[in-house]
Design a protein around this nucleic acid. Sequence first.
DNA 1: GTCCATCGGTCGACATTGTCGAACGCTTAC
DNA 2: GTAAGCGTTCGACAATGTCGACCGATGGAC
Lengths: 254, 254
Amino acid sequence: MARNIQSLERAAAMLRLLAGGERRLGLSDIASSLGLAKGTAHGILRTLQHEGFVEQDDTSGRYQLGAELLRLGTTYLDVHELRARALVWTDDLARSSGESVHLGVLHQQGVLIVHHVFRPDDSRQVLEIGAMQPLHSTALGKVLAAYDPVAHSEVLEGERKAFTERTVCAATDFEGVLDITRARGYAADVEETWEGVASIAAPIHDRRRMPVGAVGVTGAVERLCRDGELRPELIAAVRDCARAVSRDLGAGRF
Amino acid sequence: MARNIQSLERAAAMLRLLAGGERRLGLSDIASSLGLAKGTAHGILRTLQHEGFVEQDDTSGRYQLGAELLRLGTTYLDVHELRARALVWTDDLARSSGESVHLGVLHQQGVLIVHHVFRPDDSRQVLEIGAMQPLHSTALGKVLAAYDPVAHSEVLEGERKAFTERTVCAATDFEGVLDITRARGYAADVEETWEGVASIAAPIHDRRRMPVGAVGVTGAVERLCRDGELRPELIAAVRDCARAVSRDLGAGRF
DNA sequence: GTCCATCGGTCGACATTGTCGAACGCTTAC
DNA sequence: GTAAGCGTTCGACAATGTCGACCGATGGAC
């Protein structure tokens, strides 16, 4: 039994399919999308529904993701050591910088946001915990791509989409960006992912000096930049925060 | 095939086991806890790991929940219609009441928090989205138990633990609380779950007048009460919010 | 340093288990 | 009124996941 369990793989594919499709999906859609017989797909869905991983709309009969996923996903955050150690430091960074702070880890071909501190003003903001960011265009992603070999290979093998006209897509150019990132110890994203938005991020290392995540600030390019350059005090604050979290993880013994 | 898929049920039990145990679990622990052969447990865990639902600590070999759960759980929130409709109204409620606002739905034997607006001050607060609250002692839970038949049977069949000396546990007493809740149209929790904390909640109905969730404010008992009574303007604000969301869902056509 | 208990992981035979495709009510749309 | 589509059920088949013994590695106890 060197192979993986078939029914589990199919169930995971279903959950991912339901997560990708904007709205609810019908049984026939799901079965045909995955190349399964309707009876097979129904058996898996029925079990997933019984376990709370999917829910079914009573009237339309369509399926969507279930609440148990939210509960388990939150539990994942609770046991996340990096996140726990970073909580106070990211809070401080948000206060001192006046910008929103994101903490991200490598997940599949992107950056998974595991913590998000709102910009400390009264503006309405949406929580981005659990969201994914691209590896090649965001500051968090570049940091991971520069320091984590797995992230590096993921970003080189994957497609690098141009979100704005400033996005760096060509492989050689992007390698140059990573070299600069490693040389400077931080990465930046000035309108490479979203128009008008800039971000600065630095790597977090564990006690074995392995990169485990990245922390950074994100905000309007007018606030993060001054005279066309990223504000040095912001860069210093982000790097200080990353170092503090790394030290908290046991990396700083020297 | 009237029964559910065995391997999926076992995988779900593993995820729930990993979510329950405070820290990482070893393969042998998992196998013996579920009464499985080690080889079987390992096959399921390997597949779950490959799909990103569990992660394995490189050094200790122990297992914990995986990042994919966080991603899928967040996606669940994105497609949650009730939550989407409630976003602006809960924001307004938090501003007008000056207290934190929770939006909950029935899940298994408790209330799953699907939205949480922080109290609008600069105090440090922890996000409770994805957390569970008991049905019998919180305002959100009492509302659901009073209006949703499924929640009602869950709370009657389940154990009603006494969190404080004010918790109502006896079945007959609790039924009286639900009668009062239905008569008044809202529920309260004054130090029945946490010492010093009170909450007020009201039900949300969909277009078919079925209860689909509850919304409420939570805060220090000194702020929510005045002269030993819950502040009437807070009750009115909560009920207005619940009605507004219900109307947004299409319930208010008359 | 050595031993022993225990860990996570592998392997192959077995039969239990999930899969498939057809058929069933039922609703919806024309 | 009809027909097409939906989600669901069913039974036969064999592919599939399960089991328990076994393996090398690890880590305490002494």
